[in-house]
Design a protein around this nucleic acid. Structure first.
Lengths: 290, 290
DNA sequence: TCCATCATGATAAATTTTTCACAATTCTGT
DNA sequence: ACAGAATTGTGAAAAATTTATCATGATGGA
């Protein structure tokens, strides 16, 4: 009988390196919705993980159990113990860390930010923004400031694969007036501006607005002054137990936008993506022979 | 097929009056430590409740199941559903958008990713990593790949304020071997590498490891090959309903790290931050937050 | 008190599940 | 490119679990 102080989940993760390809595949499947999947019949688990039945049997033995039934018995025992233990420890995010640990406090705050932000968002406006960003006829400019340029670049890198005709502008650089010359009516400018709102970014937005560009703004709950010019703006809650603000919620919105735009342009993107896949495969091959 | 909105526990309690003596005995045994006992073999359940095997079989049918295995299947399904949403009784995050809207689907996935990731993280390892990153005696290198360099830069920008003596390396650039010359034993290298793991990044990590640097790795659930070299690694779940992966969870970890490191160095950081504020004010590059 | 009805349990049959032995495949180092 | 080792899968045997059958005991009303 294996060590009782470690959960099966812990032990799987610990052994993850010693496992073979199929076993690792299985391990992830078990962890995926733990412990439910492990409590079903062996064959079902094998099917879900797309491995053969004996692979499952072999791995449970590797984990130190005599057989699958013994493995299940301990899984049930874990479940018993967990249900019995006080609920206080139950609602923390990082198991084994006190609820006052930064990991738990921070995560609480971020989840709360997400909930608030999504609760206030206007889905129609979001869809409209995605349509604009997806429109390949319009040139797309993506603008970020001192910190937010990382978010801007994240959006830019993905859009680069999805559509042509786009530019990343860093408002802190002094080259942006050059880009502005090319902006014409109907172009789309996505601007990131969160508190410690930046003068440069505001100027840029004003001028783009004057030239008749569509402005989409990602800002915080207090809203950058740019929001008065913007056609569509999204404000995220960014407060966390830190001297800094959180960009996690804004990133969530950006990623959702990427996914939505991708879907809108799927027919054309597909080819671009597959090309990219090929490149990755080549990289893999390259690694194999070195 | 029984009603899906009611849990088995609910249904047993509802039927409690219609049950016979032995069945009631069994029912209480099931509820005693729910749902663990129901997930074992039928015979074990019968023994624990001190009733005969056929009694169990009969009652399960009385509850509307075709047989014991079907009963267990639903029990597992309940467990799955319960594990998924300790927070998210929210079916829809964005009010006014259908639950199938990308905003809701994506947010669901990200919350789930966060829950999984935090559940598997080792708080002690996290604290240790923060200590290393906070140690100003060690030079800090931050390394990112094609996409992840945005995350790396996000960490870099904040660390720049918190501590001196750090470098941002982009593994896709060809200048990184240059930086490698300066790495010495005891230095700390924070590496970002998520799937579509990059050969350049691996090479860099190997060489830094060979020079005796401490390696801290941020990767995904399948883990970059670098994790075998890394002193500490963190794996985030990154799957979302998109052709791309999500960086949101990794960003959450980074931000938590920033905040923790900030607190560790607070005395010295405070001065740096104020100095920075002054510089911003003087150059009038940034507006003061009101 | 006796019979009819229902609940319960023992046993056996049927089915499912697990384990084992061996073959095919993939990977690794020369 | 090859041989040897390790990994993975296939199919059959063994073990277990579940279901069905039937006998026994209990209960309650005439």
């Amino acid at each position: 009988m294996p060590d009782a102080t470690l959960t099966i989940s812990d032990r799987i993760q610990q052994k993850l390196d010693d496992l073979t390809r199929a076993e690792r595949q299985l391990a992830h499947s078990i962890l995926e919705n733990y412990p439910a999947s492990g409590l079903g019949p062996l064959a079902a688990l094998a099917r879900d993980a797309q491995v053969s039945v004996p692979t499952v049997a072999r791995m449970v033995q590797k984990l130190g159990f005599k057989g699958y039934p013994e493995f299940q018995a301990e899984l049930r025992e874990e479940l018993r113990a967990k249900a019995k233990s006080p609920i206080a420890k139950h609602d923390t995010w990082a198991d084994g860390a006190p609820s006052g640990h930064m990991l738990n406090r921070f995560t609480d705050a971020v989840i709360d930010n997400i909930r608030h932000t999504l609760g206030q968002i206007n889905p129609a406006a979001f869809d409209e923004a995605c349509d604009l960003v997806a429109d390949k006829a319009r040139h797309l400019y993506i603008v970020g400031g001192r910190i937010t340029h990382t978010l801007a670049e994240y959006l830019f890198l993905h859009m680069q694969v999805i559509r042509p005709n786009l530019t990343h502008i860093q408002s802190t650089s002094n080259t942006w007036p050059h880009h502005l010359l090319d902006i014409s009516e109907g172009d789309v400018v996505v601007v990131f501006d969160v508190r410690r709102y930046e003068n440069n970014t505001l100027k840029l937005a004003e001028m783009a607005h004057a030239k008749g560009a569509k402005l989409i703004l990602f800002t915080d709950q207090w809203r950058s002054p740019i929001h008065q010019l913007a056609d569509i703006s999204f404000s995220s809650r960014i407060v966390v137990p830190s001297a800094w603000d959180s960009a996690a919620t804004t990133l969530l919105l950006i990623e959702t936008m990427i996914s939505t735009v991708q879907n809108l342009n799927w027919d054309e993107t597909k080819a671009r993506m597959e090309e990219l896949e090929d490149m990755f495969d080549q990289t893999k091959l390259f690694r194999k022979f070195t």
